Computed example of a mutant assay.
Amino acid sequence: MPGGRLSHQERRAIAAGLNDGLGYAEIARQLDRPTSTISREVARNGGGRGYRADHAHYATSSRARRARPQTPQRPSDTDQYAERFATIMVEGGLPRMAARVLARLYTADSRSLTAAELVTALQVSPASISKAIGYLEQVGMLHREPDPRRRLQHYVMAEDVWQQAWKISSRTNLDWAETAAEGAELFGPDSPAGRRLAQMADFFGQLADDMSGGPGFDVIDDALTVLAAYREAGRVIEDERAAAVLGWSVDRVKTALELAATTRLSPEQRADLAAGAE
């Protein structure tokens, strides 16, 4: 007795037998099939009056394709790299999903990605993406841009994303130092808890100072802001004019350019400043 799936020809024989008024047992005998096979085939595909051989054959094939397990796609080299990149950021203290989103944005061909694209790429729920986006927006590492043609939001990574991350880490260390110092004062310098907290305050206070670059760190931001004003104007503008535009004092403009150009800017930033001063 043959086994396996019914062929297209067998289904045509079943349809012909039903049209001739034959019972399931007789059709099964003619096809050398179990009666149960014929009865299930007819029941699944329209019943005795509605059975159509062609429709039954293609419908069964379609069900089989849907039921066939899909072979999972092997992650590409870029996908694997993005996940390794995210792991490094997680080890540095970034929440895991936020790190995965940031890694995808950093390695994408496009300058931005939508929530749907992130859901597809990371194979997670929209809620997980939304939570990660909210965190990254809160700390200034990305922002939203509306799509002018469709009702979509594009997520764009901040150009100074790592500077923002550095500042956040520095502020966190400063918060720890201040909280520990408050505790040391509360418990008293002679108590065990006070001594431990005072030591902690000194450590994180020094770490925050080191990370912020000391008193001249903000000069970098000031210098780049002045440079941006130069670029916007298309020329070097007088210190007094720059101060008026930015709402700063003239001394602040001069100090930012003089100190930052010689101490705390990268070679690329110094080159930009030199070009702006020409």
Rank of each mutant, 00 (worst) to 15 (best):
S191T: 10
P148M: 05
D272C: 05
D109N: 09
P146N: 04
V101W: 08
A15S: 12
R33Y: 02
L18V: 02
M141D: 02
Y24S: 11
Q70S: 15
T225M: 13
F204G: 06
L273W: 00
L273G: 07
A243N: 10
S170L: 11
D175L: 14
A127H: 07
A223T: 01
A13P: 00
A25Y: 05
A103S: 10
V139E: 03
A82M: 04
R65P: 03
M89E: 14
G50K: 11
W248T: 05
Q163L: 14
S170D: 15
A181C: 10
I220Q: 06
L18S: 00
G216F: 07
A67M: 10
D239F: 14
A28T: 03
T60M: 06
R5G: 09
E41R: 00
N45I: 04
G134D: 08
G92H: 07
A98W: 14
G3A: 12
I38D: 00
D109M: 02
L113T: 03
A261H: 09
G194C: 00
R150A: 08
G234D: 02
I237T: 03
G48P: 11
R40K: 14
A132K: 04
F203D: 14
V124K: 00
A43Q: 13
E278I: 14
V101R: 06
D202I: 09
D147Q: 09
Q269R: 06
Y58R: 13
V236Q: 15
R40M: 06
L118Y: 02
A223E: 02
E178L: 15
G140C: 10
A127M: 04
A115C: 13
R100N: 11
I129P: 06
G140W: 02
V226H: 06
E178Q: 13
R65T: 10
R241S: 15
Q73V: 07
R65L: 11
T179H: 03
D222W: 10
S110W: 09
A177W: 04
A67E: 15
L102C: 01
Y106K: 13
A132Q: 00
S249V: 04
G47C: 01
S169T: 14
T179N: 10
E91H: 15
L22S: 08
V245F: 08
R144Q: 12
M141L: 15
A193D: 11
M141P: 01
V139L: 06
R150P: 00
E83S: 12
S39V: 00
T37Q: 04
D202W: 03
E159C: 07
E182L: 12
